[in-house]
Amino acid sequence: MEPRGVGRDARAAVITTLAFVTAVALLPPGSYVALLLAWLLVTFAGALLGISPGHLARRGLVALPFVVAAVPIVFLRNDELLWAGSVGPLTLQISGAGLRIALTALLKAWISVQASVLLLALASPPSIVTALRRMRLPDVIATSAGLTIRYLELLRDEARRMLRARTARSASPVGVGRERIGGTIAWRARTTGNLVGSLFLRAYSRAQRIEEAAASRGATGSLSVGTLPVADPRLTIKVVGVLVLVLVLTLAGVLLPRL
């Protein structure tokens, strides 16, 4: 695999990731063996890129909290009851089918996140935007996305500094040691709105400066998104390879045992 870079055609990487994530999504509930296979693929690709499996696994955990959404079905489905009983005043039951769906969703999320972490290791954000533009993403969106990515860290840094300055002035009443929240909720919300408004004005004047700089360099109309990198000559082969991989994974979902 090629290292990431702005000048690369990242289409193959983008297509692979999307196809892989789709194949994972297609696996039916309980196909743990196929999911294991999918995870092996991701981890192996990661290792080839020099990313440790532990690191990838930890990154995958960002999706963990969403499993709350699947909690109701574990307790409310009536099929394959694993356990039913009462806890205090509550009568509870645990559905095997619900548990299977929740666990499968969680594993799919965990593996898919790792796949998109790999995409970032393969292709830089601007090259992903360029690849998407080649794949018919409209120019307005590509330009806007490119600029958003370029100014993201700058504005997040400004936001961080503003928050820090607010924190420095957030003292507790005289005599209270631990941090104490001050003012009414409405006042605090208004303060936050003020921060948002201030940041907007800073962003707006930055946009104006970029505009002026672009104009002074003779740019007209929309900002050029940059020239496209040389097309990947082996794109077709790679896409075919990806399709084979997806097919294998899907077949694995069909053929391998499920629990």
């Binding site: 700058l154 997040r156 936001a159 605090r188 936050t192 962003a203």
Partner: peptide
């Protein structure tokens, strides 16, 4: 301003950063 894509791009970054601002409820 003259070029909307520039404003849109920078304001995209702004929305991103603005999502960091929070206020304590409890």
């Amino acid at each position: 301003i003259a070029s909307q894509p520039i404003l849109m791009g920078v304001l995209g970054a702004f929305i991103f950063a603005a999502q960091m601002f929070n206020f304590p409820v409890a």
